[in-house]
Simulated scan of single mutants.
Amino acid sequence: MPGDPGHQKRALRAELRERRRTQTSSERSAAAEGITRNLIELTRSTGARSVSCYLSAPDEPETRDYLKWTVENGIRALLPISRDDGLLDWTVWDGSEEDIGLFGLPEPVGDLLPPYAINDVDLILVPAAAVDERGVRMGWGRGYFDKTLGSMENCPPVYAVVFDSEVIDEVPRERHDQPVNGAVTPTRVLRFASSSRS
């Protein structure tokens, strides 16, 4: 059904995946520099000393240079490790090793911390396929981050990391979708005034 948010999301994800695949290497390189600069700016402006981030997949906005900066600046970075039950374990990133986890995505190697370890961070950075200025985030359909964010009692600011063209007018929303406080793109840091985390 065209009006069904699930159907709309599937169509939108397919379009966004194709857009990411057709980026040139120079576009990717410029985007990586901008993302790194803006993630650092956001981290400094929030005063975060502990963050949750992730290792970007090849077609995602690059997070590794930012993660290198966190290690060099004494900022504790927790990175997710997917579990079969739909929850995320975490490990503290030291910049040394990564592996391929569930779904063929890059994941860190390290001592496992339980799902509630994320409760101690000051800032959460999440991957996204798209986000709108109401703070509605669309992921890639597995629900890991929606589950994690939905289970947190005192959630710190949450920012989606996307390319500029992925901040769109409206993202189809379903009941389980968790809002974000803002987005980081290669050219800007957006804060969504209307986003409410309940």
Rank of each mutant, 00 (worst) to 15 (best):
M1S: 15
G3D: 14
P5A: 03
A14K: 14
E15M: 07
E18T: 11
R19L: 13
R19K: 14
R20E: 02
R21I: 00
R21H: 13
Q23S: 06
Q23W: 14
S26A: 15
E27M: 09
A30W: 06
A31S: 15
E33K: 15
I35C: 08
T36W: 00
I40Y: 05
I40C: 08
L42E: 02
A48K: 02
C53M: 05
C53D: 03
S56L: 06
D59C: 00
E60S: 10
E60M: 09
T63K: 10
R64F: 07
Y66M: 00
Y66W: 06
L67V: 05
V71N: 08
V71H: 05
N73T: 09
P80I: 07
P80T: 12
I81Y: 03
R83H: 01
L88I: 07
D89T: 07
E97S: 13
D99A: 15
I100A: 06
F103C: 04
L113Y: 04
Y116V: 12
I118K: 06
I118V: 15
D120P: 00
D120N: 10
V121G: 03
D122P: 11
G141P: 07
D146F: 04
L149T: 04
S151D: 10
C155H: 04
D169W: 12
E170N: 08
P172S: 12
P172I: 12
E174A: 11
R175G: 09
Q178A: 10
V184M: 03
R191K: 14
R191N: 08
F192M: 09
R197V: 11
S198P: 14
